[in-house]
C-alpha cells in the first residue's frame, strides 16, 4: 500500500517535472525565435539589396552600404582562425594527451577558464594598449586579429580539449597496444575520432568571433576605407589584403552608427547590418551541425 502510493507520487512528480521543463524550454525558444525574427524582419528590406551589401558606407548622406564591413568581418575571421586554430590545437593536445595531472595542468586549466570568461572589452583595451600603442601597429587588421585570437584561444582550446578527452580510453589503449607512439595515436586516431566535435566547436567559435564588437572597437578601429579589389599593393589602405589598414567590421559598424552616426537612414542601415550579421551567424550554426553530422556519419557508417 505504502509503496504504491509512493510510486504514484513519484509518477506525479515526473509529470510535473516534464510539464515545467517543457514550459521553460518553450519560453526560451519563443524568446529566441522572436529575437531572430525581429532582427531579420526589420532588416529584411536590406538583406537582398546588392547595393547595400556591396556599397560604400556613407558619412552624412542616406543610402550607405556595408561592402567593406562585410569583407572585413570575414577577413578578420579567417586571420583569427589561422592564428588561433594551430595554437589551440597544440595546447589542447598537450593538455589532453601529454600533460600529467598536476599543478601545471591545474594552473593551465584555471588560466584558460579565466581567459574565456574575460569580458571582451578588456581584451580590446589590452589590445589597444599593447598592439595599437606599444607596438605601434595602429588601428589595424593585425591588431584586431590578435585581439580576437586572445579572445578565441581559450574557448577553442577548451572545445578541442573536451573533444579529445571524450574519445574513449579504449582508443588510446588500442593505439598504444599496436606499438604506436603517443603522437601517432593522437594524429591518426584521436584527432580523426574527435573531428566532428572539433569542427563543430571551431565553427561555433567562428560565430562568436564574427559577431564580436567590443574587442575590435579599439584594435581594428572604426573606419572602413573603401576597398579596391584590383589593388594588390599590400601597403595601400585600399588593398583589401593589407593587414595594416584599419578595418571596421559589421558588429562594430552597428555600434558606431548607433552611437555617433548622423546619416538620415541610420535605423535602416543599422537594422540591415544586424540582419546580415544574424543571417551569417545562423548560417555558421547550421553549417556546424551539418558538417559535424556528416563527419560523424562518415566515421561510423557503411
Amino acid at each position: 500500500m505504502a509503496s504504491s502510493s509512493a510510486s504514484a507520487r513519484a509518477r506525479r512528480q515526473d509529470h510535473i517535472a516534464t510539464g515545467v521543463l517543457t514550459a521553460i524550454v518553450a519560453v526560451i525558444c519563443v524568446a529566441l525565435v522572436a529575437i531572430v525574427v525581429y532582427i531579420v524582419g526589420s532588416g529584411a528590406g536590406k538583406l537582398f539589396d546588392v547595393s547595400f551589401l556591396t556599397g560604400k558606407p556613407q558619412q552624412f548622406k542616406a543610402g550607405g552600404g556595408i561592402g567593406p564591413e562585410l569583407f572585413n568581418s570575414f577577413y578578420l575571421l579567417v586571420l583569427t582562425l589561422l592564428l588561433s586554430l594551430p595554437l589551440s590545437l597544440g595546447a589542447a593536445i598537450y593538455l589532453a594527451e601529454y600533460a600529467h595531472e598536476g599543478p601545471v595542468t591545474t594552473a593551465a586549466k584555471t588560466i584558460i577558464e579565466t581567459l574565456s570568461s574575460l569580458p571582451s572589452i578588456v581584451v580590446g583595451l589590452f589590445g589597444m594598449l599593447f598592439f595599437v600603442l606599444q607596438l605601434g601597429w595602429g588601428f589595424s587588421i593585425m591588431s584586431g586579429a590578435l585581439a580576437l585570437t586572445m579572445f578565441n584561444l581559450p574557448i577553442l582550446t577548451r572545445v578541442i580539449q573536451q573533444a579529445l578527452e571524450a574519445v574513449p580510453r579504449d582508443q588510446r589503449d588500442a593505439g598504444l597496444a599496436l606499438g604506436l607512439t603517443r603522437w601517432e595515436t593522437t594524429i591518426h586516431i584521436l584527432i580523426p575520432s574527435a573531428m566532428p566535435a572539433i569542427v563543430t566547436g571551431v565553427i561555433l567559435s567562428a560565430g562568436r568571433v564574427f559577431g564580436e564588437a567590443a574587442a575590435l572597437i579599439y584594435t581594428a578601429g572604426q573606419s572602413a576605407p573603401m576597398l579596391d579589389f584590383t589593388n594588390f599593393d599590400l601597403s595601400s589602405a585600399s588593398c583589401p589584403w593589407n593587414v595594416w589598414r584599419p578595418a571596421e567590421t559589421l558588429a562594430v559598424h552597428i555600434w558606431k552608427i548607433n552611437s555617433e552616426g548622423v546619416v538620415p537612414d541610420l535605423a535602416a542601415v543599422s537594422s540591415g547590418t544586424a540582419a546580415v550579421l544574424m543571417v551569417c551567424i545562423l548560417a555558421f550554426n547550421i553549417i556546424a551541425r551539418i558538417v559535424g553530422r556528416r563527419l560523424e556519419r562518415r566515421l561510423t557508417a557503411e
Partner: peptide
C-alpha cells in the same frame, strides 16, 4: 581489450 575498440577507419 574488454570493449571492442576498432579505429574510426
Amino acid at each position: 581489450f574488454q570493449h571492442p575498440n576498432p579505429f574510426p577507419l
